[in-house]
Simulated scan of single mutants.
Amino acid sequence: MSPDVVVLDYGSGNVRSAVRALEHVGATVTLTADRAVALAADGLFVPGVGNFHACMAGLAAADGPFVIDRRLAGGRPVLGVCVGMQVMFEGSTEPSAAPVAGVGEWPGTVSRLRAPVVPHMGWSPVEVPSGSTLFAGIEHERFYFVHSYAVHSWELAPPDATFAAVAPRVVWAEHGERFVAAVENGPLAATQFHPEKSGDAGLALLENWVRSL
């Protein structure tokens, strides 16, 4: 049976390409903001296009932070993409220097890229740690980025060795400076790039995620 995936519909731009890509790799996809449906799905896909502040406002109006938190508390998978990754952190300095609060699943603040050319737009390689499930078989591929803001450091402490928790796997890329390109952290995964716009490599990543549900 195909896994059920909800693409959270909270007003974040055109998400039809994400729906089509997820269907292509074998998911049964519902585009909705219905809280009960989003909570019950095998996987939740959180898109994000444009301004961090606007995305958080739309997410809050759809009760997205509650849905994300409840799913993760129950170990139910969530995948955030682009600004949908950025909102998982504590906040962002976009659009102004005063931080706008995010969902807060991970510590850290999203800030503007320090690079000669911004936005970062185009295909870039990524540095993938060993043991990645999300990037299995595509560790050396390039992915498509469109962003002006990013997370520049990983601040979550490693798990205590006395517990069975698995350390998060953090993927890096570079545009003027190193930034977090993706994270795998238990049921919560996210990418700064757009897998649905990253050709065969992006489809392979989405297929890896769907197969894990």
Rank of each mutant, 00 (worst) to 15 (best):
A38E: 00
R114C: 05
V49C: 13
E105N: 07
G64T: 07
F52R: 13
A73K: 07
M85H: 11
E94F: 00
A61G: 01
M85Q: 14
G75M: 11
V83A: 07
D69K: 06
A57V: 13
D42W: 03
A57D: 15
A73S: 07
V87W: 00
T93P: 06
G58Y: 07
E90C: 03
P65Q: 03
P65L: 04
P116T: 11
A62Y: 10
M88Y: 05
G102F: 05
V118N: 01
A60N: 08
A61E: 10
V103K: 03
V110C: 15
P77A: 10
V118T: 04
C82H: 07
R76E: 02
F66D: 14
R114I: 04
L113D: 09
I68P: 02
G43V: 13
A57I: 07
E94G: 01
D63M: 02
G84F: 10
V81T: 14
R70W: 02
F89C: 05
A38S: 12
A60E: 14
G64P: 01
V78S: 03
L44K: 10
C55H: 08
N51C: 12
E105W: 10
R114M: 05
A60F: 00
R70Q: 07
D63G: 15
S92A: 14
G58D: 08
F66M: 09
W106E: 04
R76K: 12
A38R: 00
A54N: 14
D42P: 00
S96T: 12
V37P: 00
G104N: 05
A36I: 04
L113T: 07
T109Q: 13
P99R: 07
H53Y: 09
W106H: 11
A62D: 10
A101H: 10
G48V: 13
L39G: 12
E105P: 00
V87Q: 01
T109E: 12
P65D: 06
N51S: 15
R112C: 08
R76A: 08
R76H: 04
R76D: 00
S111L: 06
E105C: 13
S92G: 09
G91V: 05
A73D: 07
P95D: 14
V103F: 01
R35P: 10
L39H: 06
F89H: 13
A41Q: 12
M85S: 03
F45G: 01
F52S: 14
A41S: 15
L113E: 09
S92T: 10
G43H: 11
M85G: 04
R71F: 04
E94Y: 00
S96R: 12
A41G: 14
A41P: 05
A38H: 01
G80E: 05
G80A: 08
S92M: 12
F66A: 12
A40W: 14
A57H: 11
G104F: 03
A38N: 01
F52W: 14
T93V: 09
R70P: 01
V117L: 11
G50A: 06
A57R: 15
G80K: 03
V100Y: 00
L113V: 14
P77D: 04
R35M: 13
A97K: 08
P107R: 12
G48H: 13
A97V: 08
D42I: 05
F52P: 10
G102C: 08
L39E: 15
L79T: 02
N51I: 06
V118F: 04
F66W: 09
A38W: 02
G84I: 11
L44D: 03
A60Y: 00
A73N: 03
V81L: 09
